[in-house]
């Protein structure tokens, strides 16, 4: 068992280093202005980037603009990317910062209406009734509506910790603050958010 484990570990390590090499090559080609590489980069990460932004903001309004902003920043910053972290982690950090900017500038709007994605072709069969689905969407909208009442920095930290389950050091790295600051933001953010949640009877 021990040998198998070791082999598996080596195999995994080899796979990871292969991924890193491919990633480094992709970055190199993108910086060199290779169009197919840039396209590959965009195609690989556009959906994860959009999903990250969507989850943080809970709002699909202007999502295309934000995705564009993330990639413009990414392409601009690629030559400075030192590859100490994975490309996906680096992109996630950009997403977080773009989302934070969006939260800060966002004017008050009616609560977001989260619509299910349009389904083309095969109709997905859901075991849940339309009524259940609607209630679920309303519950999500309620959570995001309450999150909107928290200040942007606290909201982001709260989201990353309470919803994504990231630890303080990870969050500190993502938002560019030290862990103590993050902890303080989280402390007050949790107090505010759960107070709202406990008192919200909508």
């Amino acid at each position: 068992m021990k040998i198998v484990g070791k082999k598996t570990g080596e195999h995994l390590a080899a796979g990871q280093s292969e991924d890193k090499r491919a990633e480094a090559e992709l970055i190199r080609l993108c910086i060199a202005g290779e169009r197919s590489a840039q396209e590959r980069f965009y195609r690989t990460y556009c959906r994860p980037v959009a999903a990250n932004l969507y989850r943080v903001l809970g709002d699909r309004n202007d999502l295309d603009d934000l995705v564009q902003e993330v990639f413009v920043i990414a392409f601009r910053g690629l030559p400075k990317f030192r590859q100490e972290a994975r490309l996906s982690t680096w992109l996630y950090r950009i997403c977080v910062n773009v989302a934070l900017g969006r939260i800060r500038t966002k004017t008050r709007r009616p609560p977001p209406i989260l619509k299910a994605d349009p389904v083309e072709g095969d109709v997905r069969v859901s075991p849940e009734s339309p009524q259940t689905l609607l209630e679920r969407e309303e519950s999500k909208a309620r959570v995001y509506r309450l999150l909107e009442q928290i200040s942007p920095k606290k909201r982001l930290v709260l989201y990353l910790h309470e919803i994504e389950g990231r630890d303080l050091k990870d969050i500190a790295c993502l938002v560019g603050a030290n862990p103590v600051t993050v902890r303080t933001r989280l402390f007050y953010g949790r107090k505010e958010f759960y107070k709202l949640l406990a008192e919200d009877d909508s």
Binding site: R43, A50, A51, Y54, R55, D64, K115, R136, I163
Partner: peptide, 22 residues
């Protein structure tokens, strides 16, 4: 609220005009 929050990380990206954004 916690039940809903547990589902939020599973949300997929909505369909966007990827070519246009590209």
């Amino acid at each position: 609220g916690l039940e809903v929050m547990a589902e939020l990380p599973k949300q997929e990206a909505p369909d966007l005009a990827w070519d246009h954004i590209g």
